[in-house]
Structure formats: structure tokens, C-alpha cells
Simulated scan of single mutants.
Amino acid sequence: VLGANRCTYADLRSGAVRLLEINHTLPTPADRLHLILCQPPAEDWTADTLHGIFKVHVLWRTKEGWSGKDTETALGTEPA
């Protein structure tokens, strides 16, 4: 989870690298990695770019709930 005002590409890239480092140290690596933001990314292209490069999903809060790639899977709300 990145704190308030940490939504630029540089912030997200740093968070993704940290997630990959942590995942590398786990006895059983996670199947999916999710970076959670307090607000939408500063640049529209960053979430897709981060996923394309690092395979890290980026999610952020909206007034209606959550946004980002595969939010249903990340939040466990996928229809059965």
C-alpha cells in the first residue's frame, strides 16, 4: 500500500520493485502481486505499464469503490 500523494510512475515503480523483492524472499511466492493506492495514478498510462513490465496489478480507491486491472480477483468479489 502506497501512502497519500504517492501516485506518480516513479512511486509506483519503486513500490513494484519492493513487492518483487519481498515476494522473492517468501518460501512460496505469491501468485499475484497488487499495489494499492490511495488515489488514481498521476499518469493514466502507469498502471498498464507497471503491469506490463513487472506483472504487478495496481488498484486504487474511487468514490464508487475500486478501480484498476482485475479488481474483482484482487478483492475476492469475482462472480462464481
Rank of each mutant, 00 (worst) to 15 (best):
E43K: 04
S14W: 02
L20C: 07
T71R: 08
Q39K: 12
N23H: 07
T8P: 01
E43S: 13
G65V: 06
R18E: 10
H34T: 15
L33Q: 11
T8E: 06
L50H: 00
V17G: 12
W66A: 10
R61Y: 14
G3P: 14
L20W: 09
L35G: 06
H34I: 11
N23M: 01
G3S: 11
A80W: 13
L50I: 15
E78P: 04
K69C: 13
E72L: 15
H51P: 13
A42L: 10
G65Q: 09
P41E: 06
G52I: 08
T49R: 10
E21K: 14
A42C: 03
L2C: 02
T8Y: 05
T8W: 00
K69W: 09
T8S: 07
V1Y: 03
T49Y: 08
N23E: 02
V1W: 07
P41F: 03
D44E: 05
Y9A: 11
Y9I: 01
L33F: 12
R18Y: 04
E64M: 04
D11M: 08
G3F: 13
D31G: 06
W66N: 01
H57P: 01
K69V: 10
T77K: 03
R32V: 07
R32A: 06
P40N: 01
K55E: 13
G15S: 08
L2E: 05
K63H: 12
D48Q: 02
G3I: 03
V1M: 02
E43I: 10
S67A: 15
G15H: 04
I36D: 05
F54P: 01
L50G: 05
A74G: 14
P41N: 10
K63V: 15
R13A: 02
H57S: 14
A10M: 09
T62E: 05
R18L: 09
C38Y: 00
Y9P: 07
I53G: 03
A4H: 11
P41R: 04
E43H: 12
L37M: 02
C38M: 04
L12E: 00
N5H: 09
V1P: 06
L33W: 08
F54K: 05
T62K: 00
L33K: 12
G52D: 12
F54E: 01
T62I: 13
G68C: 02
L19M: 09
W45V: 01
C7L: 10
W45C: 02
T73C: 00
V56C: 03
T25C: 03
